[in-house]
């Protein structure tokens, strides 16, 4: 059942609508568990679109296997998604920096508050992100240290390759996931792929995890597939490699590949002079779980993250 979560009149003959697709069992008992699948807060992150499509397709065809409520929100930032823009157009505002919002606030805060109110009270929420256009990520779940005891069991059900337990940063308090967790709704952030693209294999992997999670929570009575056992790691085991100069980054390694300390990761080239400006070597041994996708770099551009630590 399609529903408007919130809508706002735009200046010229149009309403901006945030929509969800609501699924519930044929016979409601009032005790059903509810899961929310959210994506598209950043308009350039499309990996969640295939997940929503396929999830809705399977639920539509197998309503008799549903024992709980599933709410699917494919586009939290419909204007951004439609105009290939990461931020909320009009305000140029990162939508994931305005939660929990305010019902009496300006337009963006009001929208954020309406989203919060709609999701709050769910038994679990999955917020699916792609990376931005600059970096490619393996399927992973990111949770803060504070929420790890509660969220780690759910995260392990999601069939991701990696769970990153990171330290909290104050600015992250304005994200949807932090705000929902603070409001008592367990929320996981799934991150995979790259901005402006859809990686079907990653989507299928996460879908298996979502059905597994729904099954374990008693929401889904259909078949599920075995899920992988993810690597769980903290900040201390993650090494970040930044560019020390500007130019064009040409990697010499593959994403999600094992490397040894001292291995050649890639070069930064100057296309005008034909020179190599910097050779990049692995500072430690491990697995490259983040790799730069967008070639143009500045000093300080993130090139790779290695799981392994130094």
């Amino acid at each position: 059942m399609l529903q408007d979560v919130v809508s706002v009149s735009l200046p010229v003959n149009e309403r901006m609508r945030i929509k969800k697709n609501h699924f519930e069992p044929y016979n409601l008992t009032g005790n059903e568990k509810r899961i929310c699948i959210v994506t598209g807060i950043h308009g350039d992150e499309l990996e969640g679109q295939y997940v929503c499509y396929e999830l809705i397709r399977r639920l539509s065809e197998n309503g008799h296997l549903l024992n709980g409520i599933v709410d699917i929100y494919p586009s939290m930032n419909p204007l951004g998604m439609d105009s290939i823009k990461r931020e909320m157009p009009i305000f140029d505002l990162d939508m994931n920096m305005i939660f929990p919002g305010s019902e009496t606030g300006a337009v963006a805060e009001h929208i954020a508050a309406a989203i919060m109110n709609d999701i709050k009270g769910a038994d679990i929420c999955i917020d699916i992100h792609a990376s931005n256009i600059f970096l490619r990520e393996i399927p992973q779940v990111r949770i803060s240290k504070e929420t790890a005891p509660k969220l780690l069991p759910y995260a392990k059900m999601l069939n991701v390759d990696f769970i990153w337990v990171h330290s909290s940063v104050t600015v992250m308090e304005a994200t949807l996931s932090h705000s929902l967790n603070k409001a008592g709704t367990p929320t996981l952030v799934a991150e995979m792929g790259v901005g402006m693209r859809i990686t079907k294999s990653y989507g299928d992997q996460l879908l298996d995890g979502i059905f597994n999670l729904m099954s374990k929570m008693g929401i889904w009575a259909g078949e599920t597939r075995n899920v992988s056992h993810p690597i769980v790691s903290t900040d201390g085991n993650v090494s970040l490699i930044y560019s020390d100069t500007s130019g064009i980054f040409m990697p010499t390694i593959k994403h999600w590949a094992g490397i040894s300390k001292g291995d050649h990761i890639g070069d930064i080239l100057d296309p005008l002079t034909g020179t190599v400006e910097q050779e990049i070597f692995a500072p430690c041994s491990g697995i490259v779980f983040t790799l730069r996708e967008y070639p143009v770099v500045y000093e300080g551009s993130l090139l790779a993250r290695i799981l392994g630590g130094c």
Binding site: R86, E87, D92, M97, N132, F134, V171, Y242, V296, Y298, E299, G300, S301, L302
Partner: peptide
Amino acid sequence: RFWSVDNTDLNRMFPGDANGKTTQR
């Protein structure tokens, strides 16, 4: 309005990080 490459807001990067990403530096 924001950083010419990745549209991040410089006024959301303080106190910065000399070893971090471009706008943090």
